[in-house]
Amino acid sequence: MAYIIKVKDLFFTYSDGTRALNGVSFAIEEGSRVAMLGPNGAGKSTLLLHLNGLHLPQQGSVSVRGREIGKKTEKWVRTAVGMVFQDPDNQVFSSTVWEDVSFGPINMGLNSAEINNRVSKALHAVGMYEYKEKPPYHLSYGQKKRVAIAGILAMEPGVIVLDEPMAYLDPSGKEQVVNILDDLHQRGITIIIATHDVDLAAEWADHIIIVKDGRVLANGGSELLTQKKIVEEASLTYPLVSRIFLNIPELAVAVPRTVNQAVEAIRNLIKR
């Protein structure tokens, strides 16, 4: 089993004394789709910032591709693990979309031809190539989000981390981002998202990490999202599909978590 990221006994306390992480441990397989859930203040964002070296471990360790992250490797890991922040206005700041997406490759020291190739591919991947000459402040929130993702794609990391990627997006914008994430997964990129959206986690992720009070409360497959004790302790809700079946216990079927699983369960019930 090839793990691309390993976190072991990670602790982190902010300068004001707030303990954000309290002994976090987990491992992520290469090429997986990971959803990290938990209540506000659980430590999700702090944890994500450790995965690409924006925070360095105070105690414990974070390793990416077998290399432990610290002062000697923090620059390297920012090219290996791309971070897309919740608010694209914190990430999209140049005078044109093209300039913004080229920022990372330029700082990697790439030549002009390679920079142009990467930026073009990244903008096409998120459906924003036709906006390449537009100032970012003329874009919608969802378009800015896609430009922020393109800026990370242009650096060609093996891992992309997204903090609340669906926040403040309309249904069309959410669908566009999911399609982008699915395309990245098909390319073999490991994707980690922090989200409050249990329906997204259930439908999209193959690995669930639930965090509470700076610790990993549960770690496994999407079946965790239908386990009463875990859902209640993490202040989550059941996926909508699961709630329907949980409210009809006489159906006596395994509780589905996704639409496809629900369709299959209903078909099996009809055949009885």
Results as ranks from 00 to 15, higher is better:
Gln91Phe: 12
Gln91His: 10
Gln91Ser: 11
Gln91Lys: 09
Gln91Leu: 11
Gln91Trp: 06
Val92Arg: 08
Phe93Pro: 05
Phe93Lys: 13
Phe93Arg: 12
Ser94Asn: 15
Ser94Trp: 01
Ser94Lys: 14
Ser94Met: 15
Ser95Phe: 07
Thr96Asn: 03
Thr96Glu: 13
Trp98Phe: 14
Glu99Gln: 11
Asp100Val: 01
Asp100Cys: 07
Asp100Asn: 09
Asp100Met: 09
Val101Asn: 08
Val101Phe: 12
Val101Thr: 11
Val101Asp: 08
Ser102Asp: 03
Ser102Phe: 04
Ser102Glu: 11
Ser102Gln: 03
Gly104Ser: 10
Ile106Phe: 11
Asn107Glu: 06
Asn107Asp: 08
Asn107Cys: 05
Met108Lys: 13
Met108His: 06
Met108Asn: 10
Gly109Ser: 12
Gly109Arg: 11
Gly109Glu: 12
Leu110His: 03
Asn111Ile: 12
Asn111Glu: 11
Asn111Trp: 13
Ser112Asn: 13
Ala113Tyr: 14
Ala113Leu: 15
Glu114Lys: 09
Glu114Trp: 07
Glu114Gln: 08
Glu114Met: 07
Asn116Glu: 15
Asn117Gly: 14
Asn117Pro: 04
Asn117Val: 05
Asn117Tyr: 14
Arg118Ser: 08
Val119Ser: 04
Val119Cys: 05
Ser120Pro: 00
Lys121Cys: 00
Ala122Glu: 07
Ala122Tyr: 05
Leu123Lys: 04
Leu123Ile: 10
Leu123Arg: 03
His124Phe: 10
Ala125Val: 11
Ala125Phe: 15
Val126Tyr: 12
Val126Trp: 13
Val126His: 06
Val126Ala: 09
Gly127Ile: 01
Gly127Ala: 00
Gly127Phe: 07
Met128His: 04
Met128Ser: 02
Tyr129Asn: 03
Tyr131Arg: 12
Lys132Met: 09
Lys132Phe: 06
Pro135Met: 06
Pro135Ile: 08
Pro135Tyr: 12
Pro136Trp: 06
Pro136Met: 05
Tyr137Thr: 13
Tyr137Arg: 06
Tyr137Asp: 12
His138Ile: 10
His138Trp: 15
Leu139Trp: 02
Ser140Leu: 00
Tyr141Leu: 05
Tyr141Ile: 00
Tyr141Lys: 05
Tyr141Ala: 06
Gly142Leu: 02
Gln143Leu: 12
Lys144Asn: 11
Lys144Gly: 02
Lys145Ile: 03
Val147Arg: 04
Val147Ile: 10
Val147Glu: 01
